[in-house]
Every structure is written in C-alpha cells, then in structure tokens.
Nucleic acid binder design. Structure first.
Lengths: 195, 195
DNA sequence: GCATTTGCCTATAAGCTATAGGCAAATGCA
DNA sequence: TGCATTTGCCTATAGCTTATAGGCAAATGC
C-alpha cells in the first residue's frame, strides 16, 4: 500500500482556489471543494491554512496582485487618454477573464493586510494616469474615486448580466464611457493657461 | 400549556430578513438566524418559504422596490442636473442607510423574476433623467450604463471602506463626480443647434 | 360540534468549518 | 546505515447550515 503525498502547500491551494473561483464563483470556494480537487480529506488542509478566511484572503491578494500587474503592463509608456483607455481595458478584461478572482479582489481585508496588498499599487497607478490631466488636490482624489467607481461598477454590472437585456453591445458603451470620462477630466484640468 | 402561534408569513419573514441583512450583512442572512429571531424552529420556515433562495430573492425584490420608490420620490418634479443629483443622492443614501438591503438588490435573479421586478423601473427612471440631456440612441443606452456603473460602483466601494484611507470626505468626491457627469452628459447632447 | 386545514413541532440526513489525536512517510543527523 | 524527529495526511467528532418527512394541536369551515 504505497501512499503518495499530495504535495499541498498554501501557494498551490491558493492557486487552485483561484481557479475554482473562476469556475464556480468566489462564494462557492470551500475547503471541502478544494480538498476534493486534490483528492484529499478536508481536514488535511488545515495543516496549510489557518481557516477558510485565510484561503479567501490569499486568493484576494493573488487577484489584486495579478490585476495590478496587468494594469501596470498596459499603461507602461502611455499617457493621457491612451493611458486611461489602457488602464480601463486591462481592468475590464481581467474581470471578464477571471470573474471569480475579480470577485475575490473585492473580499474585505483587514486594514493591515490591505495596506500591504497590491491595492495600494492600484491607487498609485490611477494617480499616475491622472498626471496627464493636470488635476490639483483634492480634485485628483475625487477623480481617483470616480474612475474606480466607474471601472468597478461597470465590471460588476456586466458580470451580473445587467447589460444583457438591451441589444447594444457592452463594448460600445464601454468605449463611449471612456470617451466621456476623458472629456470630463480634461475639462477639469487646472493649469491650462488659456481657458 | 398554552401554545401561541408565531404568526409567520412570507412578508414578515422577508421584512425581518431585510432588517437582519442591514444588521449583519446579506450573506449572513440564514434561515436559522431568522428562525431564532422569531423564536421558532428553523424547519418551520419551510411552510412559508420554499428555500433560502426564495428568502434572498424576496429580500432582493423588496430592496429594489424600496430603492425605486425613493428614487422616484426624489426625482419627481425635477429635471436636468437637479434630477441627476436627486437620483444619485437617493441611490447613495439608500445604500448607506441599508447596506444589507443594498447588497440584496444585487442578488442575481432569474431572468423572469428580474423582468417582473422594480429593476425595470430603475432603468426607466434613469432614461427619464437623461431626457434633460437630449441624447439619441444608442448614446442614451450608453449613458444609462455609465450612470448605473458610477452609482453602483461608488456605493459599493464606499460600503467596502475603500474611501476610508484618504482624508478627503466621500461627500465631496461624490458632489464632484456628479458635477463631472453633468458636464460630460451635456457635452454629448445632440440637438444643441450651435456646436 | 365535527372535519379539515394550517402552523409549528421533532427527527433526520447531508454538507460545511473546525479541532484533536494518530500513524506512516520524509527528513535530520550521527 | 539506523534511529529520532518532523511533517503530511488520516479518522473521529462536534457544531453549524439547508432541507425533507411525518406528527400533533390550534384554528377554521360548515
């Protein structure tokens, strides 16, 4: 009776959990389901994860990390509306390709964990693309929040199927929205010499 | 041994469920918790609700209804930016006053239920507001989606505490955002004679 | 005043999280 | 190479959840 170990680790479990989330939804990610996936008993996972909260937190951190990487990649070398579009598309594309991970990225983290997460990179990158619009504080903060709301709101509603009822393609509305945002932000630029 | 009946009904259970959601979060609303609240055994609830999905669906419908009522009330007799602001504020205020119900309003409904819900009133009211901006199709649809995204995104991020880290008041960013949206929409008005 | 319906009950099963304790494989070290 | 320790996964168990089946008494109908 040769017993081969499954080779579990927090990292492997997290990755498998993220895949599971994309397949069945983040709220359906359970330790039991994960254990089944590794053909292992559910209690065995507790040797690698403190509890299911830790699993979810790790998946959330993974998603934030991946999303920040993609956005960083997309905006590199771009500025102005070009950067805005690249950021927004990277964001939306990730949410569509990885719905479970995207949900996970909204999992509520305790303050210290959040502070150490890639969430701060998101805020930094948003501020970076706003450099092309010459916004002074506190307008810049307002704009960060507005953009975050639009991107998250759109991704979230689209994932929920809210745009499925009407015959207009979600892609067109997205492009239109980005255009709109660009205009709005430019109209708020401060140091433009002649109004 | 006088046994007094608890007087359960789908309506009372739904309302209590909504209150419970606001107190502990929509995902913490369970039939067991609800039964405890009525000092009744959990299995008894199945006489009034098919299952927990029905409870959640009913809470979602209640929330959509309430939200639509408030918005309708707020926008009545207003037009243009005034209407936009009233709509937006009613929306955000509801989300802040009733976080659990607001979460419930995002609960995924099956298509027929959604079609019969107050969700359609939301879309109608959004279109009504946009009448003040003279947008032709498909721009109107784009605008409906953009506004929905901003409102939902903002409420959702604010509820998640995403705006707590920076010292700028969420109210100010909200006002700024609405201003921005108004400008953006006006710049897209079609039948404005002279460009 | 009796029959029917209704409302809540107990009992039970299955799935989830979590803890405790056991045993064998893997590893460390002389 | 051989023994002690550590590690990895196991079983067993308890408490929580949803959900179903069947029972009995209160409420209602006639």
């Amino acid at each position: 009776m040769v017993v081969v170990r499954a080779g579990l680790s927090p990292e492997r479990l997290t990755l498998a959990g993220a895949e599971l989330a994309d397949e069945v939804g983040f709220d359906q990610v359970t330790l039991s389901a994960l254990a089944r996936r590794f053909d292992v008993k559910q209690a065995s996972l507790y040797a690698h994860l403190k509890n299911s909260h830790e699993l979810k937190t790790r998946i959330a951190l993974l998603a934030l990390e991946e999303l920040a990487d993609r956005v960083a990649d997309a905006v590199a070398g771009r500025a102005g509306k070009d950067a805005l579009t690249a950021f927004a598309n990277a964001y939306r594309d990730y949410a569509r390709a990885h719905p479970g991970r995207y949900e996970a990225a909204r999992y509520r983290l305790d303050p210290e964990t959040a502070a150490a997460s890639a969430g701060v990179r998101h805020a930094q990158m948003t501020r970076a693309i706003l450099r092309g619009y010459d916004l002074a504080e506190p307008d810049q903060t307002h704009a960060v929040r507005m953009l975050g709301s639009v991107f998250h709101g759109y991704a979230s509603l689209e994932a929920a199927g809210a745009f499925d009822h009407t015959d207009v393609a979600a892609q067109q509305s997205w492009d239109w929205t980005l255009d709109c945002l660009d205009t709005a932000l430019r109209s708020r630029s401060t140091p433009r010499p002649a109004a």
